[in-house]
Design a binder for these strands. Structure first.
Lengths: 392, 392
DNA sequence: ACCATTAATTAACTTCGTCAAGTATTGATT
DNA sequence: AATCAATACTTGACGAAGTTAATTAATGGT
């Protein structure tokens, strides 16, 4: 039985709970990303005294963000008082996430641990800023105002957009598929929805989701490679995402792997994207669509099969370059292109293993297709992160 | 005239001065790396109040690490009280640095700002651990016990070794040229010299030196490419050096830039090192030594000239890969291979500009030869850093 | 002579942690 | 059953290291 702490019972402004102490944010972050843990374990991991954890956790418990596991669920080591691990009450707060593409919006509602609770789609008839904002507002309303009434526990919305995005200011400098230039999407969407909005590049958002809530959880360095129309790469190094000083980073698609390879739209030759990008595969296969190329390859067409083999190998070489240069703890390969997973996978591994230098071959490689709503979950993950780490 | 502060006059243990406060270490670091600055400027840069700077700076002044610029040197902006910038007394403390190669030791003495005050060389007859330790001790004695008597203000020694080094423990896991395996060089050298020893990989040490005291000063991200027998790369991302989770990072030499290029000793084809490494250049030029190849190329031999052109271009492609992937604020290209600076430079730039994607071409590229003692200065720089940032 | 302006210092206060001591809850030993 | 060792958690006193606001200092312009 826990004694009632009257100081903690003072009504608490939600946002003030985390601002209250740096330790509170650290504790909540550790629990969200690494699951239930005792105070002692948290103290060791965060470099704090257990007294500090006790103190910082109390307001979080009182505010409904944390609870203790039931006595029955305790996992005592043997002797001594068993721990009562702290766990996140995931449904204390929800977060909306929306991925913007040129012709569609995908939206999700996630809880504090980035579990998806609801999904919704919405076609985009026009990519004018006003129309997109109206559709975002409608999609968010559809997600939040259903029977579950997520609305009352949702304060934040994350948006993921491809292109050049400044997360701090919520400015979309340039987005190719929407054909936007310098749109203050953060402010506009906040006005349209009444939520606190975070805007992030889509690949970086997905990388963040995977780094906090997926296979990259807890890793100090991590890379996510996306395969599709473009070949992209999100990087986490020294525990933080890599942005690139001149606005360029993770451009794995424009590494040249073959000096005499095909011409790329960037002006160079033999870029990974010019070998493995969807439109280049379609052109090389001589089919009208990528689906047709996939079908031919699966039916055993040797010419089209070789196109996929070459593409997979080029991706593998690009991944090896990442491993050789930054040495991430692990690499995840995903993206809509991997719907043709079976055609790519062995060749990606072969290319990687051929070019990875020394111990870099030990870098674990996960290759798997990606549900498309995962992009929206990435947007929500960025929003969760902005809640837990006000300044990072 | 500054009033005497009696509290500050209490005798201070040297090492305690920095341990005294995090702010003190931050201030000294900022002054060492960015030159003299007023307290107000420091406060802004470090995110502190000017009151905090005043307080933290006083013990450093009393201990002789800082002083104020003379009134005559003050650079007042116009109105208001002119600032009295703080500056480091560089000769308050000295640091020894030694670079180990397979057949030679190069040693330097540096002050707090990494200015070289003395240089000495020493051939290595044997690379047995005991012999090398004896030579290190003799070299350090030669450097420190001269007429200047650096000894009395030197407590630390940095060692730079090529290969796989664990800086934390001072362990040399493997060093190819010395043919060492698991040598506890840190402890051994500390016993042999009586100094506190830091051991670091040579490329990382040089990167550190350039990041703190050279062209990379103050940059959040930075890359140093070394050209020589091997082609190496040190990276700083998110303000910290990149180590690589599996012990591999910065292996720019084993990026493949030409699928049909020459066979590399790593097993792959077309690696940058297999085109631009010294021994491969000698082989391609068909000359007995690299000097002979350089001479022929400078005399206008078109075949050998083309070898250097191709090598430079391969290096440029590798650098473009770094720029495209991690987007460093700037890149420095150096190393003993650049004694043939004139033969490489335009081709490195051409390769870089061809393959750099989008705004990555804006990344400033410094290409310059490197005095060989610079490697030893890198070792000293690591030692300085270990003094200023006890835990980093 | 006075004022606006910027720099540096000082003292009171706030924040956020640690430390050391005590309480709580278990398994093992007598 | 009583006690003990072990481990987890809590508590209150304390201390480190910053902040804010007021004060002092030094300059150029009017």
């Amino acid at each position: 039985m826990v004694a009632v702490d009257f100081r903690g019972m003072v009504p608490v402004d939600d946002d003030a709970v985390l601002a209250a102490s740096p330790a509170a944010a650290a504790i909540l972050t550790a629990l969200v990303t690494s699951g239930p843990q005792s105070r002692v374990t948290l103290a060791r991991k965060l470099g704090l005294s257990s007294a500090a954890v006790t103190k910082a956790a109390r307001p979080l418990i009182n505010a409904g963000y944390l609870s203790e596991l039931d006595a029955t669920e305790r996992t005592g080591p043997g002797a001594g008082r068993p721990a009562s691990p702290l766990m996140v009450r995931a449904d204390r707060e929800f977060f909306a996430g929306v991925k913007l593409t040129g012709d569609e919006l995908i939206g999700v509602v996630c809880d504090l641990t980035a579990q998806v609770h609801a999904v919704a789609h919405r076609p985009l008839a026009s990519s004018s800023v006003d129309d997109v904002l109206a559709e975002i507002a409608a999609l968010v309303a559809e997600l939040l105002d259903g029977p579950q009434n997520y609305r009352e526990r949702t304060r934040r919305l994350g948006l993921a957009v491809s292109g050049d995005v400044d997360r701090e200011s919520g400015l979309v400098r340039y987005s190719p598929f929407l054909r936007w230039h310098n749109v203050r999407l953060g402010k506009l969407a906040a006005a349209a929805t009444g939520l606190a909005v975070t805007v992030e590049n889509d690949v970086k958002a997905l990388t963040t989701a995977e780094h906090w809530f997926g296979e990259g959880a807890g890793a100090d360095s991590f890379a996510l490679v996306t395969v599709g129309v473009g070949i992209g790469c999100g990087l986490v190094v020294n525990g933080r995402p890599v942005s690139g000083s001149h606005g360029v980073a993770g451009e794995i698609g424009h590494l040249s792997v073959d000096a005499s390879g095909p011409q790329c739209h960037c002006g160079s030759r033999g870029c990974v994207e010019a070998i493995a990008g969807t439109s280049y595969i379609v052109a090389a296969a001589g089919t009208p669509t990528i689906e047709a190329a996939v079908d031919l390859a699966r039916d055993g067409d040797p010419t089209v099969g070789a196109v996929f083999a070459r593409a997979g190998e080029a991706i593998g070489l690009g991944i090896a370059a990442v491993a050789n240069l930054v040495g991430p703890a692990r690499i995840v390969v995903s993206g809509e292109g991997l719907s043709a997973y079976d055609l790519f996978e062995p060749h990606i591994r072969a290319g990687f293993e051929r070019q990875a230098f020394g111990a870099a071959v030990d870098c674990p490689l996960s290759i798997r297709p990606l549900p498309f709503e995962e992009w929206a979950r990435g947007a929500a993950a960025v929003s969760i992160q902005s809640r837990l780490v006000p300044l990072a």
